[in-house]
Computed example of a mutant assay.
Amino acid sequence: MDNIKIITTEDGSHSLYHEGLKETYHSFHGALQESVHVFIEKGVRFWRTKSGLPKQVDIFEVGFGTGLNALLAAQFAMENELKINFTTIEPFPLDMGIINQLNYATSIGQDDLKDVFEQLHTSEWENTIDINKYFSLHKCKTKLEDFDTSKRFDVLFFDAFAPNKQAELWTVDLMLKCFNLLRDGAVFTTYSAKGQLKRDLKSVGFEVETLPGPPGKKEMVRGIVN
């Protein structure tokens, strides 16, 4: 992928720059900080705390990308002895030549996560793979509009490219699909805080919260199914 370049963000962790879209995969203020804040702390940890610390959670991710969110979810699962069943979609997987250069395990400060990160990317697509006793991964090479499952989830990481870059991923129809993929009490979390997004989430049934964003970003959005 000649149009994808590795960049170093302000917290020292890598991200990617898509030259065609003129867009980064993560915040240039800090890829690791952003993912921890938006998806782990305001997503899975919030859901688990409000749900009474259950021992299992089903997560759905829109945009596997570099695998950073999945790696952080696997770390969270191991540290909390929590079983996470992680389903993710990605229609355009990255080349392993790029993946092998990313410094996420080092940035997190746990070299033992290097093997986990490699397994996330080398695991077979379209099958559920047990990465370890706490974390299973199911990758689907598909778009959200084509994703078909009867399964329902507890947490949804919405990590598509920004609305001003790929507006077709943020339509009200796809927000409704996200809502219908979630169980009662489930949580939808994303880095975006666009007014139209909040209106669309409310219109399909979410209770919408505007939260402080990660470093360098004022706000983010969380939706709850009640």
Rank of each mutant, 00 (worst) to 15 (best):
Q75N: 14
G97I: 01
Q75D: 13
M78P: 00
R48V: 05
M96E: 15
E90S: 13
W47F: 15
R45Q: 12
L53Y: 05
V38L: 01
P54T: 02
E79Y: 07
G63F: 15
F86Y: 04
M78C: 06
F46W: 14
E79G: 08
P91N: 13
R45D: 14
N69A: 04
G65L: 10
A74G: 11
A74R: 07
I59F: 01
L72G: 15
F46V: 02
D58L: 04
F60L: 09
M96P: 10
S51C: 10
F60H: 07
V38D: 04
E81A: 11
F60A: 05
G52P: 13
I89F: 01
E41G: 03
F92G: 09
D95E: 05
I89Q: 11
T49N: 07
P54G: 04
V44N: 02
E81W: 03
I89E: 15
N80L: 05
F60N: 00
G63H: 15
N85S: 12
R48A: 06
I59W: 01
F86N: 02
F60I: 04
E61K: 15
W47N: 12
A77S: 13
E81P: 02
I40H: 12
T88D: 15
N80F: 03
F39L: 04
E90Q: 12
I59Q: 06
G43M: 05
V44H: 01
E61S: 14
P93E: 15
M78L: 10
F64Y: 13
I40Y: 09
H37F: 00
F92C: 02
N80I: 09
D58P: 10
F76G: 12
P54S: 07
I40V: 14
N85K: 12
K55W: 01
L94C: 11
N80G: 08
P91T: 11
N69H: 00
L82D: 02
L71I: 03
N85Y: 05
A70K: 07
T66C: 12
T66I: 12
I84A: 08
K42C: 11
L72C: 10
G97Y: 05
D95Y: 02
T66D: 10
F39M: 10
L82V: 05
L72H: 08
I40A: 11
L94P: 13
D95T: 00
L53E: 03
G43L: 03
M78A: 14
L82Q: 08
G65C: 02
P54E: 04
F39T: 07
L68C: 12
E81H: 08
E41S: 12
K42Y: 11
A73V: 06
N85F: 03
T66K: 12
N80Q: 09
T49G: 00
Q75G: 04
F76I: 10
F46Y: 15
M78D: 14
Q56M: 09
F64D: 11
N69M: 04
A70D: 03
E90C: 11
D95G: 09
L72Y: 01
G52F: 10
F76R: 13
Q75K: 14
